[in-house]
Computed example of a mutant assay.
Amino acid sequence: MASQILVPMDDSEHAGQALEYALDNFPDADVSVLHVVGVPSPMMGEAMGLALADNLEEAAAERADPVFERAREIATDRDREINTMVGIGHPARNIIDRAENYDTIVLGAHGADRSRAMHRFLVGNVAGTVSKRAPIPVVIVR
């Protein structure tokens, strides 16, 4: 049975559903929520903003706070606790790099609505990339 679950989250509905799934279907596991900031964009907006921050870790944590607040609410509704961590850079790479420390990855089928073609080109499909490259089982929640 899985004892360590990684749930990458952004501010999308599917990400919240993935956390709900993980908490409901792995009741005895430790669940860690990862939010990745500094995602490349056509104009390098978020990544550039982080690069210009005086304290990179503090700026990244600040940007992750709303996602973690939502994650904690979901966990509290299920009388569960979660761990949180912030990644910086490309989401799929962050997830795959951390995968060896977990038994299963549970993530939403689609991230936040960033449907612009250039963004999809730069970032790619995170769920698809993770499911192809992760060295552990991946559950994709719709």
Score class of each variant (00 low, 15 high):
D28F: 09
A127H: 08
T84W: 02
G111R: 00
S131T: 11
A109D: 00
A134H: 11
H119A: 07
E46N: 07
E58Y: 07
G111M: 03
E13T: 13
E20N: 09
S115Q: 08
V123Y: 02
L52C: 08
P42M: 12
G111N: 00
A59G: 09
M9E: 01
M43V: 14
P42H: 13
P135S: 10
D97N: 15
D113F: 01
T129Q: 14
H35G: 05
I95E: 00
A99E: 09
S115A: 04
Y21R: 08
Y21K: 14
H119D: 10
V106K: 00
P135N: 12
F68H: 11
L34Q: 05
G124T: 01
A53D: 11
L50T: 14
R114A: 02
I82H: 09
M43L: 13
A60Y: 09
G111L: 01
R98F: 03
E20F: 00
L122G: 11
N94P: 00
M85W: 00
F68I: 09
L56K: 15
A53E: 06
Y21M: 04
I95Q: 01
L6S: 09
A109H: 07
H119W: 09
H35A: 02
V39E: 07
A59L: 13
L23A: 11
D113E: 05
G16N: 08
S12M: 06
V86E: 09
V39I: 15
A134G: 08
A71E: 05
P40Y: 12
A51I: 12
A117K: 14
D65T: 15
A47F: 11
A59V: 01
H14Q: 10
P8F: 08
V36R: 06
R142C: 06
A92E: 11
H14C: 06
D24I: 04
Q17E: 12
L23T: 02
H35M: 03
R78M: 03
R98K: 15
A18S: 09
R80D: 06
R78F: 06
E20V: 08
R72Q: 15
S12I: 05
A61D: 15
D77K: 08
A75G: 13
M43E: 13
S3V: 14
G49V: 04
L34H: 02
N101P: 04
M9H: 04
A117M: 10
G49I: 02
N125R: 05
V37E: 09
G16A: 10
